[in-house]
Design a protein around this nucleic acid. Structure first.
Lengths: 187, 187
DNA sequence: TGTACATCAGTGAACGCGCGTTCACTGATGTAC
DNA sequence: TGTACATCAGTGAACGCGCGTTCACTGATGTAC
């Protein structure tokens, strides 16, 4: 082989990681393969030595985002008051400002949802998030509450990111955060 | 003029209405001017007799969607238990199945939010929705509750539309609907 | 150890396509005489 | 009332561009002898 032993595997991984970031930041449609490869210091032709098509990369990158998210959540779950901490971080200004490192749901859902085909990965991500929330929720209706909490978190983050007035953006995030934390600890 | 008196005004309106539908259904980026004009039985060149650019149409069509939404909400507000009815309709299967006739927030936000510039129209739409919800909410913290309710509605609709398993889609919609209605009437 | 060869990750030009936009034009209508 | 002209909504070819994808190639490396 041309390069050192696992050079190809490393490049493969670098493509996935950068794609995972750009898809979340700009959306899948707005992320071109040419700019993506250029970012990695490569030319676009080489892409097809790694993936059959852009669609395959989308699938793989989305799965990568989901794994990354699960890892971050698991870390939080080890601490104390994990649910409140999870809500706090999800609805933080940091998460609002860095979609490329955060939850793929707000950015990706609207785009992949309606048009084309809805990938079963979305179901998987949502079910995972629901299960994690449910584990932290008290009471017999934890399963149902988890749906409301996830909806509110995704919705508030999405709205907050779309707004041009920074005060409104903060208010959306902070109010939802406060009410959700109150509500889930009081239950 | 070539055609009857207000022919141009009619065409102008037809472009806005069709664009308003397609932008909500497919997203702004995925809606081409050429297919749009073809749908109306026109050729694409004529578009620029009506709008300066696609961006101007986006602005206008979004405003149209917002007005349409306000009109529908005002109608509900005239009936009894308007808040519960509003939540019920927002989180209905009909709304899930017909994004082209519904709320522009889930489809449009993710796309227009981060990249490019966030239009102040989004702020306007969100502020309007918050005000309407607040009017229907009891208690002194109606303003804060309205933020949670809107976030949960938008989030649940978005997630429900992105999912491929119809049972999960229904569960997201129905659970959020039931909990929100319970919560807002108990308050 | 030194040379000849095979491998294959990455190169970069080229493809067809649809996009937003421009522009010279057409031709049915309303207006002027 | 009948004819000549001006208007301008809509036509359709053309533009440059970036997209996803293909493909003949290059050249540094590992392997065989």
């Amino acid at each position: 082989m041309r390069y050192s032993e696992d050079h190809k595997a490393q490049t493969h991984q670098r493509i996935i990681e950068e794609a995972s970031r750009l898809f979340r930041r700009d959306g899948v449609g707005a992320t071109g393969l040419q700019p993506l490869m250029k970012t990695l210091g490569l030319t676009h032709g080489g892409f097809y030595a790694h993936f059959k098509s852009k669609g395959e990369l989308v699938e793989t990158a989305l799965r990568h985002s989901a794994q990354q998210l699960d890892a971050a959540t698991a870390e939080i779950a080890a601490g104390e008051a994990p649910l409140a901490e999870l809500i706090r971080r999800y609805l933080s200004s940091a998460h609002r400002a860095s979609p490329e490192e955060g939850c793929p749901l707000p950015t990706i859902c609207a785009e992949l949802g309606q048009r084309g085909e809805a990938s079963p990965i979305t179901d998987e991500v949502i079910n995972n998030r629901l299960a994690m929330l449910e584990a932290g929720l008290p009471g017999p209706d934890a399963a149902e509450q988890s749906v409301l909490v996830l909806s509110a978190m995704v919705g508030a983050l999405l709205l907050s990111r779309s707004v041009s007035d920074p005060d409104l953006a903060d208010r959306l995030l902070q109010t939802t955060r406060r009410l959700l934390i109150e509500q889930t600890s009081a239950d």
